[in-house]
Design a protein around this nucleic acid. Structure first.
Length: 382
DNA sequence: CGTCCACGTCTAC
DNA sequence: TAGACCTGGACGG
């Protein structure tokens, strides 16, 4: 559950489902987790959350001035004042690749629930930090990690200044400059309108995550019904049939539409893990790939799952270069790929009809895009 | 069964 | 700048 907007949704979710809930007792950590114990104990406490970029902070607040009923028992706990009262505690979480929060029945904890906060009243429930891959971290008495970039959702203005000097900004800046020169004689309102219809890259860094937040869902909707499909449907580039992808210097898959651009990794470097360990020293061939959503014909008995991300790709299966609608029409059709196919078609035209502008802008989206560059070089956004 | 892949850091060379 | 840290789903044989 790692992307910026998702962390924000997680904090909203927590504040919603924990509103009015009273928690009690100790905070429980799974055996297997290597994260620190949370030595917090209170007869009655509240949980609230805030997020900042890809971090989320839980605040545990004891309800009243309760006495520690068992003197000495709490000695090993942190955050106790002299008289044995439990003080409020902040926990800062990072979600790694798979972290999330879930309020569930305490009787049936979900798998991989590595930190549990139990409600006071029965039927007991548990707010769980669920994290399949355990890349997620939490820190007791945590604070926002100091060397992180601003939050694209709530601190967007901070991206306006202090652009790292080594950022390859030429293209971006030239584009902005170009835009400026284009419309020197327009009225202010016309300029504003133009800007809204053609948001620049920086504005999109804000607008796109905000769109996800307003969409809601992501497992953090009011109902447990959940709606991952809506998000998949919303994605314009990432994992979408017809879009292209390649691997950057760190082996990360970058999704995009159209030309990869002058900084594109040159073939050889792009494969991190060798897939040809024994014999068959086949050169790691392709550079630019079209995702071939390999939905094998087997098992597709009408109710196939929504195409999940990209299919598995091997060299020989990769389709090179300038492919087209034909290619993916031949592929497994589903509603999603169909819709996307037409969307990308539309955006190939420079002059999209005005009604399609918004869609055209979003066709550039890939939620993975901002995570592409190595940390040290990145505009400190995530 | 085995291989590859995944929304991210984190740290040891 | 490579691995390391993990589980599990999709796919291939």
């Amino acid at each position: 559950m790692p992307e910026g907007p998702e962390l924000h949704l997680a904090s909203r979710y927590i504040n919603t489902v924990c509103a009015g809930l009273i928690f009690s007792g100790k905070v429980e950590k799974s055996e297997v987790s290597k994260n620190p114990e949370v030595l917090f104990e209170s007869d009655a406490y509240l949980i609230s959350a805030t997020s900042r970029g890809k971090e989320i902070k839980l605040t545990l607040t004891p309800l009243k001035e309760e006495k520690n009923t068992l003197p000495g028992r709490g000695r090993d706990r942190e955050g106790l004042s002299q008289n044995g009262l439990q003080q409020p505690m902040d926990l800062v979480f990072r979600f790694g690749m798979s972290g999330s929060f879930k309020l569930t029945s305490a009787a049936e904890l979900p798998k991989h629930a590595h930190l549990r906060f139990y409600t006071k009243d029965s039927p007991h429930r548990a707010l769980c930090f669920v994290d399949v891959r355990r890349f997620g971290r939490w820190e007791v008495h945590g604070t926002w990690q100091p060397d992180r970039g601003p939050c694209v959702m709530v601190e967007y203005e901070k991206f306006r200044l202090k652009i790292p000097p080594f950022e390859k900004a030429r293209t971006v800046l030239e584009a902005l400059q170009h835009r400026k020169q284009q419309s020197p004689d327009l009225t202010l309102s016309k300029k504003v309108k133009l800007k809204q219809e053609n948001p620049d890259l920086l504005e999109l860094c804000h607008a796109v995550p905000m769109e996800v937040i307003h969409m809601g869902g992501m497992g953090y909707g009011p109902e447990p019904s959940d709606d991952a499909a809506a998000f998949e449907e919303w994605l314009q580039c990432y994992g979408v049939p017809g879009m292209r992808s390649l691997h950057d210097g760190n082996g990360r898959t970058i999704w995009f539409q159209g030309e990869p651009g002058p900084m594109a990794p040159k073939g050889k470097k792009s494969r991190k893990k060798r897939s040809w360990v024994n014999g068959d020293p086949e050169p790691p061939s392709p550079k630019v790939t079209k995702p071939v959503p390999k939905r094998s014909s087997k098992g597709s008995s009408g109710q196939e799952k929504v195409a999940k991300r990209s299919g598995r790709k091997k060299g020989k299966e990769l389709v090179q270069g300038a492919e087209n609608a034909k290619a993916h029409e031949a592929r497994k059709p589903n509603t999603r790929s169909r819709r996307k196919a037409s969307a990308s078609q539309a955006s190939l035209t420079n002059e999209a009809p005005a009604a399609d502008r918004k869609r055209q802008a979003s066709a550039r989206r890939s939620t993975g895009a901002a995570t592409a560059a190595p940390r040290s070089r990145r505009v400190k956004a995530e």
